[in-house]
Simulated assay, not measured.
Amino acid sequence: MRLVIARCSVDYHGRLNAHLDPAIRLLVHKGDGSLLIHSDSLSYKPLNWMSPPCTLVVEEPEEDAAAAGVVEQWRVTHRKNGDELVVQIYELMHDSTHELGVDPGLVKDGVEADLQRLLAEQVDVIGDELTLVRREYPTAIGPVDLLLRDPAGGTVAVEVKRRGDIDGVEQLTRYLELLGRDPHLAPVTGVFAAQEIKPQAKVLAADRGIRCVTLDYEGMKGTESGAPRLF
């Protein structure tokens, strides 16, 4: 990866035309050929970029550009659609190259599978004296995340989300309708469990007779967060 800090202007030509007046910016040229132009703002988002497959060629500036102070010009061309990103460098302040090696990839913590696993081990978060029947209980329209049994012999179907919205409530509603037809499972009640549940989802769940449970993921992992486990 090559990191360059330079005072530069940037022009994009292709599916759209865009221009950045001269300013100090960070240019990131990655091993896959991509070029990203960053300012000291906008968080992770570049001001402009060219995605691979593309080729970067360093050119001598034309006479009028050189007279205006341009010392080096980069032309990055996309090999499929011909789009071009032209960077004119007026002042080079930093230039370094670093070998990063192969990245092992992102390991996510707190995805729905993690929540489901923890909740299966701690069904008391849902309610007292519940027992786990099965994770990923199969139905004709897809698996129910958790199927629990209550002390009275009834069944509790639990849909687990990181962020709960009305689509998740609708999904659980369909499961409940299907499971309720099975005399071995009836009566079946539903629980919508998520780290965050949108107000519209809570309203819809209440209308469908579905109970909402807000999950404290850090607390379930054994890390004290101070957040309440139930909503």
Score class of each variant (00 low, 15 high):
Y90S: 07
A186G: 06
E129D: 15
V70Q: 03
M93K: 09
D109F: 15
S51F: 15
A157Y: 00
L35T: 13
S34M: 01
E136G: 04
A194V: 00
L100N: 07
G209N: 14
I24D: 15
L147I: 11
K198S: 10
K108D: 13
S96E: 12
E159M: 03
K108I: 14
R79Q: 14
M50L: 09
Q73Y: 05
S34I: 01
V133Q: 05
Q195N: 14
A68K: 13
K202Q: 12
G226L: 05
G14E: 00
E136M: 03
E224G: 08
K108C: 08
H29L: 13
Q195E: 10
G168Q: 01
E63W: 09
R211T: 11
L178R: 08
E136S: 02
D145R: 04
G226E: 06
S43I: 12
D167M: 04
L92T: 12
A120N: 05
Y217H: 15
G190F: 02
H38V: 04
T214Q: 15
V71G: 04
S34H: 00
G164A: 00
P52C: 05
R162S: 13
L172A: 03
W74V: 05
P228T: 12
I197R: 04
S9W: 03
T173R: 10
A194Q: 01
H19D: 04
V188F: 06
V144H: 05
T214F: 10
G168Y: 03
V10E: 03
T189Q: 04
M220L: 07
T139F: 03
G110P: 02
A6P: 06
V70E: 02
D167F: 11
S96I: 12
G142Q: 00
A152N: 09
G209T: 10
R181Q: 15
Q200I: 13
V213N: 01
M1T: 10
Y137H: 15
I24A: 14
A66T: 09
R229C: 11
G127E: 05
A152K: 09
V158W: 00
E136W: 05
V123F: 02
S9A: 13
G31I: 07
L148Y: 02
E159R: 06
D109P: 09
L119Y: 02
L178H: 08
V158Y: 01
A206D: 13
Q73H: 08
R134G: 04
